[in-house]
């Protein structure tokens, strides 16, 4: 069941008003807010990250009937996709896996790659404790691994994909202290990066998975703790995030949005970019990126929880 935050509820109300408005007057003449959306576990923080950019863009897309900006945050990818399908969202900024699903399931269009958190791209690291007997991912059979949360690309989708690709069978565990059967790899969600590292360190789980950005962030993995850990697997690099336009946005507007984003450079837009999830820059989407997005959905199926 889709759950929305209070602000979303307000938006929903606005939406119904919009529907009523659409019924009465032509769309082109009807002023509406530009809606940007994201899956979020920390809605307050994420709202603050998205709001300035949304306003900035809405202002510049006024020609397309946008008089204001709105941020909508969803608890899960499914909720987001459902919202996209109903046309209440114009613009999405997401990590590769969620972006891929939105594109695949709603026919949305990738506009640009976002160097989120200063990262142009990132990789997933699977790690254990230094003294652990586990040396490679195959050793994880009969062990447990902690992922971050179910819609994390780098800390769930990708590592799970990697493990399964190596022929391991992954089963969710009831709790962190539960153990899988001897032939399986049990997994649990640590909810955040810090827990992920701590659990491994404390031996609650045998292994953990984090992207290299989090790994190197001392806030998330304290250096002392990191010393006690060892990486047993490094994945390929993937783009960090994508800007996606939904079908609710007219193709002209989407193109205008795309151009606008790609035109933002440091240092002239530094403040704006910094606030927008510490975006270093935007880059044009390459054909191989689109392939990757397609491949991801195919490989993973639609099995996200």
């Amino acid at each position: 069941m889709p759950r929305q935050y209070s602000r979303t509820s307000v938006s929903l109300f606005s939406y119904f008003m919009l529907i009523l408005g659409v019924a009465a007057i032509p769309v082109s003449l009807c002023a509406q807010p530009l809606v940007i959306a994201q899956v979020s576990e920390r809605p307050k923080k994420d709202y603050a990250h998205l709001r300035p950019m949304a306003s900035y863009v809405a202002e510049r897309l006024a020609a397309f009937g946008f008089d204001s900006a709105e941020v909508k945050l969803y608890r899960s990818a499914d909720d987001l996709i459902r919202a996209v399908k109903t046309g209440e969202v114009h613009w999405i900024t997401e990590t590769p896996y969620t972006a891929a699903r939105v594109i695949q399931e709603t026919g949305a269009r990738a506009l640009a790659k976002k160097w989120k958190n200063g990262q142009r791209e990132y990789q997933t690291l699977i790690y254990t404790r230094q003294e652990s007997d586990v040396r490679n991912i195959e050793d994880l059979v009969g062990q447990s691994i902690a992922f971050e949360h179910p819609y994390s690309f780098s800390s769930y989708y990708l590592p799970k994909h990697i493990l399964e690709r190596s022929g391991l069978t992954l089963v969710p565990l009831e709790g962190s202290s539960s153990m899988p059967s001897r032939h399986q790899v049990g997994y649990v969600f640590s909810r955040n990066e810090k827990n992920n590292a701590l659990w491994v360190d404390k031996g609650i789980v045998t292994a953990g998975a984090l992207n290299d950005g989090d790994w190197n962030n001392p806030e998330r993995v304290p250096p002392n703790l990191r010393k006690r850990l060892k990486i047993i697997y490094r994945s390929e690099f993937y783009p960090r995030a994508f800007e996606v336009a939904t079908n609710a946005l007219s193709p002209e507007a989407a193109t205008a949005l795309q151009s606008l984003l790609l035109s933002l450079h440091r240092p002239e837009h530094e403040a704006l970019l910094d606030r927008y999830e510490k975006t270093e820059a935007f880059a044009a989407v390459q054909p191989e990126d689109l392939a990757l997005l397609t491949e991801m959905v195919i490989n993973a199926g639609n099995e996200a929880p």
Binding site: G175, S176, S177, R191, N192, K194, N195, L198, W199, K202, I204
Partner: peptide, 10 residues
Amino acid sequence: IYQLDLSRIG
């Protein structure tokens, strides 16, 4: 605590 959410406890 039940979930050993150490970071949140911390």
